[in-house]
Design a protein around this nucleic acid. Structure first.
Length: 255
DNA sequence: AAGACAGTCAACCGCCTGCCC
DNA sequence: TGGGCAGGCGGTTGACTGTCT
């Protein structure tokens, strides 16, 4: 037995939204706020499914949306985040203020995939195409692609692993303290640490020191909002293990 | 000029998860 | 504890537009 539909399909509009529908939705949310999408259409006088209203609001009508072309910096950030998180579009969107998961997903599929292919990089694995084709176990596009040649051989392959990651993201410090997204992306620099790349310029976990003026090389241990300890080091093996653990948690839908 | 094809993106669909009763 | 519900997510579709032949 299937679940009940989210709305009465027979009496709902589908397809492109009209200006009038947009206006009604905006007016309703302005005066009543978001929430209870199921009952919203009726209350707002819309012949739409609640899900459809939510999507329209989130992806198109929200006032804080940026719209317009993606910048080169956003491009690169999306690529890096995708290499770490896989197709976790909502997580990626959370790091790009004013962008929606749908927008980023579309942009990835239409622009970035092609761009990476032109560079000779497999967009699913973020590795050179020649390596991807001989990889023992092709990683799923929905899983993070920080992986090792053989999962049981991590300690033996330590140098190899570091090499892989550095090869793919030479400017990327994999420290992944989980924090709320920052709301302003300032200028990017190709030598920024991961924190700064995510807009967390003043984070205590910043390891590049560009914004805080402090120096890098110290190894620190911090506790993320999730309670996971993250060690921020040079690329030693324990640090890599910790980072992969955090990545795994992220990829498993930790929100 | 027009038909074919490719690219783009808004919107839909179905599944999953967390919350509440 | 289990079932139902609402919200959220990723994958896919299809309409529209631009470019090529």
């Amino acid at each position: 037995m299937g679940r009940s539909p989210c709305c009465e399909k027979a009496h709902t509009n589908k397809g492109a939204w009209t200006k009038e529908e947009d206006d009604r939705l905006i007016a309703y949310i302005r005066s009543n706020g978001e929430g209870c999408w199921r009952s919203l259409p009726k209350a707002a006088g819309l012949l739409r499914c609640g899900k459809s209203c939510r999507l329209r609001w989130i992806n198109y009508l929200r006032p804080d949306l940026k719209r317009g072309n993606f910048t080169q910096q956003e491009d690169e950030l999306i690529i890096k985040l995708h290499s770490l998180l896989g197709n976790k579009w909502s997580l990626i969107a959370g790091r790009l203020p004013g962008r929606t998961d749908n927008e980023i997903k579309n942009y990835w599929n239409t622009h970035i995939r092609r761009k990476l292919m032109r560079r000779g990089i497999d967009p699913a694995t973020h590795r050179p195409l020649k390596y991807s084709s001989v990889h023992q176990e092709p990683p799923s596009a929905t899983t993070p692609t920080i992986y090792f040649p053989s999962s049981s051989a991590i300690p033996k392959q330590e140098e190899n692993s570091k090499g892989l990651i550095l090869e793919r993201c030479p400017d990327l410090n994999l420290e992944l303290t989980i924090s709320p997204p920052h709301h302003h992306i300032h200028s990017f620099n190709t030598t920024l640490c991961f924190s700064c790349s995510l807009g967390l310029q003043n984070s205590k976990d910043c390891s590049c020191g560009i914004h805080s003026g402090r120096n890098i090389a110290n190894t620190t241990t911090s506790t993320s909002s999730s309670g996971a300890n993250t060690t921020t080091p040079g690329y030693d093996f324990l640090a890599l293990k910790n980072q992969c653990f955090v990545l795994q948690k992220l990829a498993n839908g930790m929100k």
